[in-house]
Design a protein around this nucleic acid. Structure first.
Length: 675
RNA sequence: AGCGGGGUAGGGUAGCCAGGCCGAUCCCGCCGGGCUCAUAACCCGGAGAUCCGAAGUUCAAAUCUUCGCCCCGCUACCA
């Protein structure tokens, strides 16, 4: 094994906080690895940060009427807070919108230029004269010339064909709807194609997982040069043309280097490739950016010539939520911030790592989460550690130590199992098989339980023998804590604290604190509550299950709880109410949104302007019913996109099975304020 | 549509690349028994799988080949 390790995690994009998918595919595995390497005495640093440039951030900023910096700072802080809340630790955590990064990226660019990898070429791009800017591919939509379907930028949504954006029929700017013109502009290109042989060789010899390799090979077969400049002003300015910025995918990965530089001169030990270094660079990422990290980024590093190439790219699979694809816009997502209000962060770390092998897609479901925690972690591992500590405390008030030479065969058998488990676990971790590593711990705890059962320490009268048995159990507990620590650092610290012990594989004779339950069960009610409040669903099945159990008290409690929550949520002041801009509006147009089950798109007159509002009343009202109706609209609701359609307000309606719109019972003018 | 992954007992999942050790692994669930130190936990035993379908290669296939069916993800902000 190498001595030094540089672990990086994908730079989070600062236009939203973190959700469970992010942490499962990237941050938790990286932190587990980091903690493990540190535990076995390696020099390891974890470098991360946020990616702050690119078009989506400028759009969000425009929408919210603030500067891109404001958006970046807001989400940078939220993302870091989420990472902290899960005990994901960094040696350095930076921002790409920072002096050190901009300087590093510009130097990198100039080096590529000096080495002959950058050239200029005129290209044609859409330019929106109303928005006054060049439009990135995905901000132009139009009709596909092949199938007449709806196409976006360089890709047809209907037939799936790749298009040149300029081929689009009736193109329009997604932002303002006007027809963009084609303008010439001079872009910088990175001579990636010159590197295809070297890249092929590099990938073949690297430790990148096979399926990433396969993807990369296919990519390299048709390697094009890379357009690396953009006509906009939010980003890292090109050092040789201040009117353009670097394409984010060129600039962002350089952040791994910039943020290492934040640690001072030691950055050279990790990045400079002078042939003498024994450093492994591991990039933890989500599978969507595997190509960037296995082809583009190594290509950049090769062209630069001074830096080490990644040793491996660890590409995490995707997470679905309750069997369905996550979607931030459809709000089918669990944010880290919300999750940890209900459950222990260490439980999340455990679950996400044991649920499936890292490279596979898998599902997060609240029921599965509860089951795994209660029946595996708590019933097997937690039970063994707890029964050992409680029993020892009762008998001896402290940790007992004995001479290992006197131990019996059955004792040594368990201790041997501990030692074997350490080896197996090690192999699993360094091969990124986190699930298997956790299974090793479960198996060890099962052996522990088995031993405890067979030895029946509660019947043993001979004190010396009892000490031996408990010593064997306590030692096994220490092994379990040691191995579990990278996954559940806080719970393990708690256990060690109770035992008055250190994080290692020995035990000392010392006093035990009065044991308390460290791994607490997840109750059905917590799961129901979380489902309801996080996912916004009431799971009738599970509520029924509670009833079926005949546990009337629980049922009553649950109902009471529910009512309490309703009541506490209700009281607001008149000032709160005054924040709502509610007005009488008239529906001018209404049409169905084809892709959706519930939504109608309405154009409403709110007095001084017309608004597009999306309403979830399809099936309850037909578009014809609605036109001309006067209704109530909440006008100052933050705009949102539903099923891809912008909604600039909310109409008021009530009811569940039968839905009714709120309408004024006398005729009053459009635009009248509700108060 | 293209690309990637996958279909193994009630639910998850290992094995498949390097065919025989597979009369198929492990975790949960289920059934029976035991124990009472422990968070209704723990321990022992058991039942339960035409390894998606069809054809082929082979002395031998869950594992290789071909065809078909089905699921999921990516290709669009997003790991």
């Amino acid at each position: 094994m190498s001595k030094k390790y540089l672990i990086t995690t994908a730079l989070a994009y600062t236009n939203g906080p973190l959700h469970l998918g992010h942490v499962r595919s990237t941050y938790i595995p990286a932190d587990v690895m980091r903690r493990y390497l540190k535990l076995i005495g390696k020099e390891v640093i974890h470098i991360g940060g946020t990616d702050n440039h690119g078009v989506p951030i400028t759009l969000t900023a425009e929408k919210e009427g603030v500067s891109p910096e404001d958006i970046v700072n807001k989400y940078h802080n939220e993302i870091k807070r989420d990472l902290d809340s899960l005990s994901i630790e960094f040696n350095s955590y930076g921002k790409t919108h920072s002096d050190i990064h901009i300087k590093t990226a510009q130097e990198f660019y100039l080096k590529l230029k000096d080495n002959g990898y950058i050239y200029e070429k005129d290209i044609e791009q859409f330019y929106c004269s109303r928005c006054n800017k060049f439009l990135a591919d995905r901000y132009v939509e139009g009709i596909c010339p092949h199938c007449s379907g709806e196409a976006r930028g360089d890709h047809c949504e209907v037939c799936g064909r790749h298009l040149e954006p300029t081929e689009l029929i009736n193109p329009y700017c997604v932002n303002c709807g006007s027809t963009p013109e084609i303008r010439k502009t001079t872009h910088r290109f990175f001579r990636l194609s010159a590197l295809s042989k070297d890249l092929m060789e590099y990938i073949k010899n690297s430790n990148i997982p096979d399926y990433v390799k396969n993807m990369a090979y296919r990519w390299i077969e048709e390697l094009h040069d890379w357009d690396i400049s953009r006509d906009m002003d939010w980003g890292v300015p090109l050092p040789d043309d201040k009117n353009q910025v670097m394409y984010v995918w060129l600039e962002a990965p350089i952040g791994y280097i910039s943020f290492t530089k934040m640690l001072g001169d030691i950055w050279r030990d990790y990045w400079l490739n002078d042939g003498s270094k024994d450093v492994k660079i591991w990039h933890f990422i989500g599978k969507d950016i595997a190509i960037h990290h296995s082809v583009f980024w190594p290509g950049m590093l090769m062209a630069h010539e001074e830096y080490s190439l990644p040793s491996s790219v660890i590409s995490g699979g995707y997470l679905t939520l309750e069997g369905k694809k996550m979607s931030t816009s459809k709000r089918w997502v669990v944010w880290v911030e919300d999750f940890i209000k209900y459950f222990d962060p260490d439980y999340l770390r455990y679950f996400l790592m044991i649920n499936a092998p890292l490279n596979k897609d898998c599902d997060f479901s609240f029921d599965e989460f509860q089951k795994r925690i209660n029946t595996e972690l708590i019933a097997i591992i937690g039970n063994f550690t707890h029964r050992t500590i409680v029993f020892t405390h009762r008998k001896f008030k402290g940790i007992v130590k004995v001479d290992e030479d006197n131990l019996k065969e059955e004792d040594l058998k368990l201790i041997n199992k501990c030692k074997e488990t350490v080896k197996e676990y090690h192999n699993h971790i360094i091969n990124f098989n986190f699930k298997d590593a956790l299974m090793d711990i479960i198996h060890l705890a099962k052996e522990g339980n088995n031993y405890f059962q067979r030895m029946e320490p509660w019947t043993v009268k001979d004190e010396e023998r009892l000490r031996e048995i408990l010593y064997t159990c306590l030692l096994t507990v220490k092994y379990i804590i040691y191995l579990l620590y990278p996954f559940m650092p806080n719970k393990c610290r708690e256990l060690l604290n109770q035992m008055n012990e250190e994080l290692d594989l020995n035990i000392r004779e010392s006093g035990l604190k009065k044991p308390t339950v460290v791994f607490k069960k997840i109750e059905d009610r917590d799961i129901e509550l979380a489902k309801k409040e996080i996912l916004n669903i009431e799971n009738e099945d599970n509520i029924n299950k509670l009833k079926d159990k005949g546990n009337k008290n629980k049922d009553k409690e649950y109902k009471k709880d529910k009512e309490n929550r309703r009541n506490t949520m209700d009281t607001i002041t008149i000032e709160d109410f005054a924040k709502l801009d509610l007005r009488i509006a008239q529906i001018l147009e209404a049409q169905e949104i084809p892709k959706s089950k519930k939504l109608l798109k309405l154009i409403v007159d709110i007095g001084d302007e017309k608004r597009q509002v999306v309403a979830g009343i399809k099936g309850h009202y037909t578009p014809e019913d609605l036109i001309g109706k006067k209704i109530v609209v909440l006008c100052n609701l933050k705009p949102a996109k539903l099923c891809g359609v912008e909604s600039q307000g909310m109409i008021l309606a009530g009811g569940e099975e039968t839905v009714a719109l709120l309408v004024p019972d006398r005729d009053i003018p459009v635009g009248s304020k509700i108060q």
